[in-house]
């Protein structure tokens, strides 16, 4: 026989409400004057950049008169005439951007890959193989970062001219790779240094040769660093103008930045400011998009190896 106890109604407990935002640590919230100033600065800087970007994007679709009379209004004249992409088409066809785009993509891609291919083994050897004097060598390579390449343009040009490598995309490739190595090696040494020693020791006990350890253990682990190096170099080379200006003097070899430079002369002479700005946008936007897409990766890549 079962006896059922009389049901006692449970006291109704109001459901617990978690705070929408947990309270921050005391003292971390106060608005000190310095913090206020810093925030103001950051926001002003951001606002300024967004404004410039906005101006660039809208001006791409404006007539010169619109650009100068209503710099911050939305474009309408080309839209009204039913030809909104007129500036872009003008820039693309008149400045030779079609070929320059192709040249730049190939040159930047090949150079960036080559830079990483050369720098990664170098950085690995400098950090991990315990070579005598590797610290000194690393510093020596790092000095290369401290020399502005503008100062060596003339001797570089003379040297390349003697080798018949001026006005040649291959010569340009060599110059780009050589000048980017110090930074890339320096960046990658930080990556390789942050990898634990035990992995190499485990690999050597497992019987892997140094070459095998590099390719099947260390390189996959440094992938984040390699990608960061690749992206940073690609962005830098994409925007590079001065060297292209000095070394390339034939339209067929022009990179985008170089083509834009020529186009600048022609377009401003014809007061074709809409087309000119469209040209600038064509050069700037691909890298901007790339950066926005990969920003997180680049930033974690840059700070990795800094801690610990």
């Amino acid at each position: 026989m079962t006896v059922t106890a009389p049901r006692v109604p449970k006291p109704t407990v109001p459901p617990r409400v978690a705070p929408r935002r947990p309270r921050p640590a005391p003292g971390s919230r106060g608005l000190s004057p310095l913090r206020l100033l810093g925030m103001a600065f950051v926001w002003l800087f951001t606002a300024f950049n967004i404004l410039v970007l906005y101006w660039l994007l809208t001006a791409t679709f404006k007539t010169p008169i619109e650009i100068f009379t209503k710099p911050f209004a939305l474009p309408y004249q080309w839209f009204e005439r039913g030809d909104p992409f007129r500036n872009i088409i003008y820039a693309w066809s008149n400045a030779g951007f079609g070929r320059a785009f192709l040249v730049t993509v190939v040159l930047v891609a090949v150079s960036s890959v080559a830079i990483v291919l050369v720098s990664a083994p170098a950085a690995y050897a400098l950090t991990r193989l315990g070579v005598r004097g590797s610290n000194g060598l690393t510093n020596f390579i790092a000095i290369g970062m401290g020399i502005p390449f503008q100062t060596v343009v003339i001797p570089l040009f003379i040297g390349m001219a003697k080798l018949n490598l001026t006005n040649s995309l291959f010569g340009m490739f060599l110059v780009y790779v050589a000048l980017s190595i110090p930074f890339t090696v320096f960046l990658l040494t930080g990556f390789f240094r942050s990898l634990p020693d035990e992995l190499e020791e485990a690999a050597s006990i497992d019987g892997a040769s140094p070459l095998r350890t590099f390719f099947s253990i260390m390189l996959p682990l440094a992938r984040g660093g390699l990608i960061t190096a690749l992206i940073l170099n690609a962005i830098g080379l994409w925007n590079e103008t001065l060297l292209a200006l000095v070394f390339l003097n034939e339209n067929a070899n022009f990179t985008l930045a170089r083509a834009l430079f020529s186009f600048y002369g022609a377009a401003s002479y014809q007061s074709e400011y809409g087309g000119l700005i469209a040209g600038v946008a064509i050069v700037v936007l691909p890298m901007l998009v790339l950066y926005v897409l990969l920003a997180r990766r680049i930033i974690t890549g840059l700070t990795l190896g800094a801690g610990k």
């Binding site: 050597s204 006990i205 892997a208």
Partner: peptide, 30 residues
């Protein structure tokens, strides 16, 4: 002799597993 010729195996304090390999690949690497 280098480590690979000694016919020894080692277990490390923080394991030193290869993070990009699966468990099977880690065990079978040697």
């Amino acid at each position: 002799l280098p480590p690979k010729d000694r016919d020894i195996a080692m277990v490390f304090q923080n394991y030193a597993l290869y993070p990009h390999m699966t468990v099977a690949e880690n065990i079978g690497f040697h």
